[in-house]
Design a protein around this nucleic acid. Structure first.
Lengths: 344, 344
DNA sequence: CTGAAAGCGCTTACAG
DNA sequence: CTGAAAGCGCTTACAG
């Protein structure tokens, strides 16, 4: 019976620099300097220490190091995007950029709960994070926590930041322009824009860019971010009298999917009769739609990469200019528009 | 110009226990004991120290504490589920269970790259994590990293573990039984099971449980985890001669969605003519299908909670029995089956 | 009832 | 070229 009980793994003693020093027959200061490639000592001493350290499997305790260096090689990622739709790619980019620098990432999901946010921020500060990245599900909303006057640098990514900090966001106007120009290029002239709620800043940016690019033909239908709205809006268009559009530029992939479904139900062929473009490049929706959606990718992973490198720079005391940085989008061409692919 | 450059936030000096001691007019040992509610001292001294500490905003440095206590109040979550579909709810559960205990979570996305996995594991060990939770996208596959013989406890969640460790997983047979029994209960007798690839262990578990529960009527169609497979399989069934099923139990929500679409295209009403059940309760698919899907939820958040509490127990040296723990599933009733809701 | 001392694991001036 | 000492911020026996 006794053997069936798991003992804690913490039992086995960890190897410290004392062990290395003893095994190499030097003092711990010499061992330290040998391993960190500083101080002066005989080349063969340095080599021997290094070899011994690797032989006995020594790994320096980051807590002890952090105590001295004031760097924990740790950052916190705060998000209120429970669904992970936006946070996941941002997180992937942050992690990818920082792992090479030995920096690990605390993920703190705070929902929309200010108390929970506060708890997480304090826990991170207690653990001496070198910086914090705040990210969310809307770039025109703040997280429900006060991140000003923290003793560590804060970078905002895909969420509203403060004016004296660095904020990374997607250039939604650019994305919308890409989409509309692509439709024009493949010969579509009657383009309708079906999009989300008016109170989203990005809805306006995209709609404005659409109007500019589409010239006189503009018609914007505001609704919600769901398939059923895409379905319903499309039905409305085809049920009312008048000339029908030959292209739909949708505010997100879910709306686009609803639109494609509605068109199919009416026997209208996508892309032959009508082209449809989505927004977000949310794989699960965009790639599984029949036909797969041509859509705008906000390059959130790249956004995460840059946010990661920026907190790192700030943590190391390198100067960084504050302000909002809009990152370009990318058009992902699949089959819902027809036409040739962009580089042919 | 100069003012446009962000200075590092690290500039402002942090408050240490020395500051508290000085401000309260006591030694640092007394200050420490006062704050930690141990040692003996005058009640008013203790109160005064505490008040002063909170007044000047003292927060103990977790790195220094960790050095002494051998506890970092930090754990690592390793995952190869880039998409986050399974990891996200697990993560949410872990985080929710541990935040109350002051434990923060490092998220390490290792894709399927053994080298990256190794790097992350070493980074976590260097940072003295109290334990590691391994999670993935398949419960019959191991992560591409060796987690045995680590100096910290490891708990597996929704991924294959070692026999001497604790593994949490969903009880897929239970989930499938719930689905089929529900269909039987609402009067469906001709139930077909459309599911994923045969090489998934969970596919077998679900199919076996289905066969057992459905009695003689069983018919299993193996394919892939996509909408298009659900669509195609449904088309096959209705294109071939013979009696048609009046219920489809699908291996995941995407397949179910494809099936529902295929039925609608044929003018077959869901749920009046045919009931459809999915698996996963992946909100974005299940809730947006028309009609919304009745589906099996694997309770991954609860699974994460339990995994979190278990690493914590192990980290604290509390005994835990090794082995695989199967957690029950839950049927989420929406509109794709008809019938009454279960508790009416 | 309170404080000086030692120490967690490491690094970095400073002697020799 | 190498090592003893001090110290990062905290806790915990041990004196007084």
């Amino acid at each position: 019976m006794r053997e069936d009980i798991l003992k804690t793994g913490g039992a086995k003693k960890r190897i410290t620099i004392h062990d290395v020093a003893a095994a190499a027959g030097v003092s711990i200061s010499t061992a330290s300097k040998a391993l960190n490639n500083n101080g002066r000592m005989g080349a063969e001493t340095r080599e021997r220490v290094k070899r011994v350290a690797s032989d006995i499997g020594f790994r320096p305790n980051a807590l002890a190091r952090g105590l001295l260096s004031k760097r924990s090689f740790t950052i916190g990622l705060l998000t209120n995007d429970t669904y992970g739709r936006f946070t996941l790619p941002v997180m992937a980019g942050v992690s990818e950029a920082l792992v090479d620098h030995g920096v690990s990432v605390f993920l703190c999901a705070i929902e929309d709960d200010p108390a929970l946010g506060q708890i997480h921020v304090e826990a991170m500060l207690d653990k001496q994070v070198d910086g914090i990245i705040a990210t969310g599900k809307r770039l025109d909303r703040r997280l429900p926590v006060d991140l000003s006057n923290l003793p560590v640098p804060v970078v905002y990514a895909f969420t509203e930041g403060t004016s004296d900090s660095v904020t990374f966001r997607s250039d939604d106007a650019h994305g919308a322009t890409l989409a509309v120009e692509w439709l024009l290029q493949i010969g579509r002239r009657r383009i309708v824009h079906i999009t989300g709620p008016k109170d989203f800043f990005s809805v306006h940016e995209r709609a404005d860019a659409y109007s500019k690019a589409a010239g006189g033909s503009e018609a914007v239908m505001y609704g919600v971010w769901s398939e059923s709205w895409g379905h319903q809006a499309t039905a409305e268009i085809w049920n009312r009298p008048g000339e029908k559009p030959n292209a739909l530029f949708c505010g997100n992939d879910q709306i686009a999917r609803g639109a494609v479904d509605a068109l199919r139900e009416r026997g209208i062929n996508v892309p032959d009769d009508v082209s449809v473009v989505g927004f977000d490049n949310w794989e699960i929706v965009a790639a599984q739609t029949r036909p797969p959606l041509t859509t705008v990718d906000m390059e959130l992973k790249e956004l995460g990469r840059q946010a990661g490198l920026t907190v790192l720079a700030l943590a190391e005391g390198r100067p960084v200019e504050p302000g909002v940085r809009k990152l370009p989008c990318r058009l992902v061409v699949r089959q819902s528009c027809g036409g040739v692919s962009p580089r042919e």
